[in-house]
Amino acid sequence: MSGNASELTTSGYIHHHLTNATVGEGFWTWHIDTIIVSVVLGLIFLGLFRMVAKKADTGVPGKLQCFLEMIIEFVDTSVKETFHGRSKLIAPLALTIFVWIFLMNLMDLIPVDFLPVLVQKVAEAFGADPHHVYSKVVPTTDMNTTFALSLGVFVLMLYYSIAIKGVGGFIKEMTMQPFNHWAMIPFNLILETVTLIAKPISLALRLFGNLYAGELIFILIALLPWYGQWFLSVPWAIFHILIITLQAFIFMMLTIVYLSLASEDH
Rank of each mutant, 00 (worst) to 15 (best):
S2Q: 09
S2P: 03
S2F: 07
A5M: 08
T9M: 05
G12M: 05
Y13N: 06
Y13L: 04
H15I: 00
T22Y: 02
T22I: 12
E25Y: 12
W28M: 12
T29C: 06
T29F: 04
I32K: 09
D33H: 04
T34N: 10
T34E: 09
I35K: 00
L41R: 01
G42M: 06
F45G: 04
G47F: 08
L48C: 11
F49N: 12
A53W: 01
K54P: 04
D57G: 15
G59D: 07
G59A: 13
P61Y: 13
K63D: 14
L64E: 12
L64I: 15
Q65R: 14
Q65V: 08
E69P: 03
V75K: 11
K80Q: 15
T82E: 02
F83P: 01
G85E: 07
L89V: 10
I90L: 11
I90H: 02
P92L: 03
V99S: 06
V99P: 02
W100Q: 11
L103W: 01
M104I: 06
N105M: 06
L106Q: 05
D108E: 12
L109Y: 07
V112M: 04
D113F: 00
F114V: 13
F114L: 15
V117W: 10
L118C: 06
L118A: 15
Q120A: 13
Q120G: 07
A123M: 13
E124K: 14
G127W: 10
P130F: 11
S135L: 14
S135M: 15
K136I: 01
V138F: 09
V138C: 09
P139Q: 09
M143L: 15
T145P: 03
F147S: 09
A148T: 15
A148Q: 02
G152A: 09
G152C: 03
G152L: 02
F154H: 09
F154W: 13
L158Y: 09
Y160S: 06
I162K: 05
K165R: 15
V167H: 02
F170H: 05
K172D: 12
E173S: 12
E173V: 00
M174Y: 01
P178A: 08
N180H: 13
H181V: 06
W182I: 04
A183T: 09
A183G: 06
I185H: 00
I185W: 00
P186V: 02
L189S: 10
I190Y: 04
E192V: 07
V194G: 00
T195P: 00
K199C: 00
K199H: 01
L203N: 08
N210L: 08
Y212V: 04
A213H: 03
I217R: 07
I219D: 09
I219A: 05
I219H: 08
L220R: 12
L224T: 08
P225F: 00
Y227G: 00
Q229N: 07
W230S: 08
A237K: 14
A237M: 13
I238C: 06
I238W: 03
F239Y: 10
H240C: 07
H240N: 15
L242K: 07
I243S: 06
I243V: 15
I244G: 03
I244Y: 02
A248L: 13
F249K: 14
I250K: 11
F251V: 14
F251G: 05
L254D: 13
L261I: 10
L261S: 10
